[in-house]
Design a protein around this nucleic acid. Sequence first.
RNA 1: CGGGAUGUAGCGCAGCUUGGUAGCGCACUUCGUUCGGGACGAAGGGGCCGCAGGUUCGAAUCCUGUCAUCCCGACCA
Length: 599
Amino acid sequence: MRVSRLMLVTLRDVPADAEIASHQLLLRGGYIRRVTSGIYAYLPLMWRVLRKITAIVQEEMDATGALETLLPQLQPAELWRRSGRWQGYTAGEGLMFHLEDRQGRELGLGPTHEEVITSLAGDLLRSYRQLPVTLYQIQSKFRDEIRPRFGLMRGREFIMKDAYSFHACEADLAMTYRAMDEAYQRIFSRCGLETVAVEADSGAIGGASSQEFMVTADAGEDLILISGDGLYAANQEKAVSHPPKAIPLPASKAALLDTPEQGTIETLCTAQGLVPSQVVKVLVMLARIEDGELQPVLVSIRGDQQLNEVKLINALSRELNKGVLDVAPISADQITAQKLEAWPFGSMGPDLDDALLSGARSWTRHFLRLADPTATELNCFVCGANQNNQHRIGMTWSKLGEVPKSVDLRKSQAGDRCIHDSSQILEERRGIEVGHIFQLGRKYSEALEACFTNDKGTQEPFWMGCYGIGISRLAQAAVEQHHDEAGMNWPLAIAPFEVIVVVANIQDEVQQKLAEQLYSELQAADIEALLDDRTERAGVKFKDADLIGIPWRIVVGRDAAKGQVELIQRSSRKVQILSAKQALTALVKEIAANQNKRV
RNA sequence: CGGGAUGUAGCGCAGCUUGGUAGCGCACUUCGUUCGGGACGAAGGGGCCGCAGGUUCGAAUCCUGUCAUCCCGACCA
């Protein structure tokens, strides 16, 4: 391809709405253009990158025996109602774009395809003899994100590979899950990315075990915790660890403390000479349940610890045996709106009276009470006295009466000791989630009554797994992990072109001729080459070549008369001065050695 | 959804306080010089100043509304 024909539009200035390096570089390099918030056009260079990633994914998926397919993006609400997710995906977080057709039928624009695929599988797969089957597709997905950001990292329309597997038994599912894990490791490594596999929360998808693949990068949205020995890695949403030891509060008689203006852990401890681990913090939250119920929740946790909202949502789902859409702290305004008396914010104890909820307009009229073990394990502590500006010291759980149910609700943090080996300490890294694999179990097959006949002749719902890779996000993550001040630096396997031949001065006939010849030879050698034949000055072409990040560059310049060119590696900036022929041979060798083809 | 900010040429920005019909840099076109790290000179083209109302003889500028975009937050009461 000739750069003069490439519609290459590079920007010198950084677009004002791009925050992170990869987003800025993709815009500046003419790879993407924003069409509207969270929605991007993939320009020709980007499309080549995406096709390369796609090809690697297809090869590795095909190698596992998975079958490629293409499913509709417009999906009937009916199907989503049957799985019980219509409400959660359209109301709640409102993640799904949805619309009505001219007949008034409701449709959703697919954020994922469990429903469609499961109902298809139910129709097509009748016997255990047909199992297992894994289907996958690569196409645009739609999610009405609360806050799209960072270009392709969190878009509202994005390209994703999703795969779904169907099994006659759980053990078979586990086998495919492992095969997918291995395929994913190969995919990311072939794409030239450093990734970490971490334990993850299953979130809205549901199901038992799940694992995320994170591209490590400082700009990552996820916080991941990794043990020093590398044996444990988890998303912070999911991570477990030993909390730091509490500093014991000497046992004493229960007594009231006057605590004016001491409504936060910090002010309370400073004023009373306490440390946060001697205090039980009480948070009041409101959980929105999928059936529309609004359940007030009272959470007790040790004062130095933080609540992990994801763990809370999961615990609530288990307690109530119902889906929980979200939880949020209750505000004073909401209490007024419920026509309730004011609550003693800043002085609440674990035994806060349910009477505060009597007469609530739309809330359930009792608290669901949960406590983190860091709170329930305290022998003696300080907590709110349930009246403004008063706390209680010398409290024990027996003095409070009922002990709330103890479940892990705390957020693990860097510095915590690990569960698998308490001599290991958790370290913090940031990551970009590029893949996620789940063992779904029978959640969807049961809901959608997708069954097969087993070897005993009886009907049984499928065991299912699902496996996603964010293709467009992966492309940007690659830039985030591989760039410098001058521009992008694509891993060879996913670069839009493998080499760019820069003619320093296109008006110089000798240079032009040598470059053209080299360009045809490269093509003949099956190397994906760009020829920068623009009438720009050399400096401009060098800057552009750095920016768009082609892994190899051949400069045909002042030594062309001697038949010499420069061969330069983008990543190392290493320069070799060679004859055109030697350069070609060297490049063919380098590329053959580093293409990361499937082995 | 809450808070903050910003909308002026393809991109980056000034002008707005103190109203008088729009400017700078990059990019684009033409000519000349230059030609290995984003050249220089000259001459050009391109803007319902986000949109809608209002105030005014006159609005990019003042007022009201609205839309859009970006940032922070949406657990520690």
